[in-house]
Amino acid sequence: MKQKGKSYRMPRWLRMLWRSKTGLLGFVIVSIAVACALFAPWLAPYDPNAINPLNMLKPPAFMAGGDPAFLLGTDNLGHDILSRLIYGARVSMIIGVLSVILAGVIGTAFGLLAGYYGGILDSVIMRVTDAFHSIPRMLLAMVAVTLMRAGIGTLVLVIGITGWITYARLIRSEVLVLKEREFVKAAVTIGTPDYKIICYHILPNVFSSFIVVSTLAVATSIIAETSLSFLGLGIQPPDISWGGMLSAGRNYLATNWWVATMPGITLTMTVLGIMFLGNWLRDFMDPHNQGLE
């Protein structure tokens, strides 16, 4: 902003990202995961579903007896684990992002209504969230998945619909605080209509907490998907998911640990990366930091 000099300057967000170690790490991890999801057919060295009985349970390349052709080893059917992990990122990303969007939209709408208008509407919405809260999320998801056809769509729906209460509560409490702020009162005395107060004064000021919670929720959604797939209720073979891989590998944990451990590490890293990025985003979007670099 200050120097429009001759030399090229990185955009502000990139400069700020560069300075934050964890933010950068998160950004790199998430970028890799997104790239894997988008370009899986080009990145994966093998067909992830190619069964190769000759190369069953090969250890990773860095271990004794490992084959450099299979970087992270192979599983009990001779699938290349790396290729499967790259394809599995698709399922995780799609479910993580879509279910969070679904939960975020529903939850934000209800949270805004409850917080802004208060009264009976608030009581009703909050009692509904209480009711939702009393049902174990996984249990509900399991029942829903058994009733409907297992697949990506069902998982998004189930994880999204069980996740909205977090948003509703967060947004409601933020709106309650904001409503008492004098700039909202000023808008009321100006005569600004409710929908404009919500759009210009309330929503922009809940956005940063929304983002932080959302990134966290992407991580939990991915874990939820993995758990369901691990239990055999999520993604069904031949579709590939990290949860399914974990599940398949657990029988070999004692003898061929890498079959379950590789997807486990991938999952942990991805979740951690998303959370780092979320934390950095929160700091970045705080307007008090806008002048700083």
Binding site: R181, E182, F183, K185, Y200, H201, P204, N205, P287, H288
Partner: peptide
């Protein structure tokens, strides 16, 4: 400090 919207 509270009467102006920090994001406007």
């Amino acid at each position: 400090y509270s009467s102006l919207n920090p994001r406007m």
